[in-house]
């Protein structure tokens, strides 16, 4: 039963990712990406990691995807981008990258196929994760907080509107 659910969720994740990355409309692609992330969250749940599944839904499918939606709404592209994107979909663009990726996938599968072990998921509770987060991994937590602060400052600096002087300099 669990195995069948795993395969179904995996197939949904793969299909949704494939559809998402070939859309021309960014918002449609985002919705498919959210479906893919929800399927991966379900797989986390099946693997006995309910805390990871909840984090995946709240942070990935919630916060990060909403950031994308905000930016797409701010850009207000309309249909201008779609025509350019459709021209990029001819085979001469994607055939060589696809071959390279296929070779990489075959190499990965060969290395994975040598594994013969089976997983009997052991549920790891949020309590155990919390204990090791503030035990052996406390330095990693501090570094992650510094990284988030750096990301905040950088995003604020990069995303600022240009001042009048900068705009004149660009035009001049």
């Amino acid at each position: 039963m669990t195995l069948a659910l795993f395969y179904i969720a995996g197939a949904i994740a793969l299909a949704a990712t494939g559809i998402a990355l070939t859309r021309v409309n960014a918002i449609h692609a985002l919705i498919y990406l959210v479906v893919s992330l929800l399927a991966v969250a379900f797989i986390f749940f099946l693997l006995g990691a309910p805390f990871a599944a909840v984090l995946e839904i709240v942070i990935y499918a919630g916060a990060i995807m909403v950031l994308f939606v905000f930016v797409i709404m701010m850009l207000n592209l309309g249909n201008r981008g779609t025509v350019v994107e459709q021209e990029m979909m001819n085979p001469s663009v994607w055939i060589i990258p696809s071959l390279l990726c296929l070779i990489l996938l075959i190499e990965l599968s060969l290395s994975i196929a040598s594994l013969k072990s089976e997983t009997n998921p052991i549920v790891v509770s949020a309590k155990e994760i919390g204990i090791s987060l503030f035990g052996p991994y406390v330095l990693a937590v501090e570094i992650a907080s510094m990284l988030l602060l750096a990301g905040l400052v950088a995003a604020n600096h990069i995303g600022r509107r240009l001042s009048k002087m900068d705009q004149e300099k660009d035009e001049g």
């Binding site: 990355l21 990029m88 994975i112 089976e118």
Partner: peptide, 30 residues
């Protein structure tokens, strides 16, 4: 045991998703 999921299948799914992402990275220009 019906709860058993082979580790190699989980890793295979991860590899497939990773390759799909890499392919998207290579062919898209937006």
């Amino acid at each position: 045991n019906p709860l058993i999921i082979p580790l190699s299948h989980v890793l295979m799914l991860a590899a497939l998703l990773f390759t799909a992402g890499l392919l998207g990275l290579l062919i898209r220009r937006n």
